[in-house]
């Protein structure tokens, strides 16, 4: 019942973006993968959600391999990837965006109730229900992207830079919500972040990636106090 990534290597075009990466995230834990721009964080996440094929290595979730599977199958199995850039479909309304995962759900009643639970978590989305997603603010878009993943009934949530381009106050809010989701819905979360400080504060585990390689794995608390990590990623 864990996410186990073992010796994973992923190429991005002709560049080796992820190189022999191994880590484990126990069920119900929130792990953050931090590192500078170009460290391979996004590529790693895209391989885990089936968007790209890795070169070699393995990744299992609850003992089943998740590599080289179509992303839609992984999504239906509860592995939800919220891509970076506030991944919403601008041309569709808030409601339509949130409804996408209900299109394939057989149990329409529970699909409806998961929609309602998203509106409880993010009341702002309920206010904007019929607006086009393109008209939302950056923070609202991020809420919508995460909300869409929740509607899909996630077990493993892969979040790519939810703080990107958001004001510090909004980042704080979003991160508190992520933490709440982890504990209340018993989610396993992999949070990819450049904003290492905020991410480590809510995370259980931290994985530091540099140029495609894991350079440190430790509890988030320890990484927050590690002088080397502080110097390199926390900006002081």
């Amino acid at each position: 019942m864990t996410l186990v990534v073992n010796d994973l290597t992923v190429d991005h075009g002709s560049i080796r973006a992820v190189s022999s990466v191994s880590f484990t995230v126990p069920t119900g834990q929130l792990a953050t993968i931090i590192g500078a721009n170009g460290a391979g964080k996004t590529t790693l996440l895209r391989a885990l959600s089936g968007l790209i094929q890795p070169k070699s290595g393995s990744a299992t979730w609850q003992s089943n391999s998740i590599l080289n599977q179509p992303p839609e199958r992984l999504a239906r199995a509860g592995i939800l990837h919220v891509a970076d850039g506030k991944s919403v479909i601008a041309e569709l309304s808030v409601k339509e965006n949130l409804s996408l995962p209900t299109l394939w759900q057989r149990d329409k009643k529970s699909a409806k109730s998961s929609l309602d639970s998203v509106f409880q978590i993010f009341p702002r989305l309920a206010e904007r229900i019929n607006q086009n997603a393109g008209t939302l603010s950056g923070g609202e878009r991020q809420m919508l992207a995460i909300g869409r993943a929740i509607v899909a009934k996630p077990k493993l949530l892969l979040l790519d830079e939810p703080s990107l381009g958001l004001a510090p106050l909004i980042v704080e809010q979003i991160f508190q919500t992520i933490k709440r989701l982890q504990t209340e819905m018993k989610l396993t979360v992999v949070l990819v972040e450049q904003n290492a400080m905020s991410a480590l504060k809510i995370a259980d585990e931290g994985i530091v990636l540099n140029l495609g390689k894991v350079v440190a794995v430790d509890s988030a608390q320890k990484l927050l106090n590690d002088p080397a990590v502080k110097a390199a990623y926390l900006g002081f």
Partner: peptide, 24 residues
């Protein structure tokens, strides 16, 4: 219709649609 929404979503963003579980 649901299939209409799937068609529109897949046309606007195949990637987000796939990540939402739609068989694009």
């Amino acid at each position: 219709t649901n299939i209409g929404l799937s068609l529109r979503a897949s046309a606007f963003s195949p990637e987000i649609s796939k990540l939402s579980g739609i068989k694009v």
